[in-house]
Design a protein around this nucleic acid. Sequence first.
DNA 1: CCCTGATTCGC
DNA 2: GCGAATCAGG
Length: 109
Amino acid sequence: MGWDANDVALLKKLWADGHSAGQIANRLGLSRNAVSAKLKRMGQKRGRKPPTANPRIVSVPKRKVAPLVACARPADKVVSQRKPTATQPKEFTKRQLYAMLVDAVRNTG
DNA sequence: CCCTGATTCGC
DNA sequence: GCGAATCAGG
């Protein structure tokens, strides 16, 4: 899972657009946790609540671990999720990026 | 009960 | 740095 420039751009776009982390996460195919964590990492946030300095003593009592082995998962085909059109230059201008962004937002149905 | 974002923790 | 788990509020 690598956050490409367009992923981050779309994330920021939708976020700035007023979309919820869950909506963006759903669109990107991630969990809202990933989106929230990413946003936090970026330094962008909608300050929902101040750092109440939670003691957070949770020491993961039982996080349950998977036996990993004996559970082989066949690799499914991974079609192009994003970047359906490779006819574009290797670099996007702000205009092009914004265009694809707004297009994605408009087709958010 | 559903949702939201924020933070911490393991990898 | 990434994602899941978890907490905290509405």
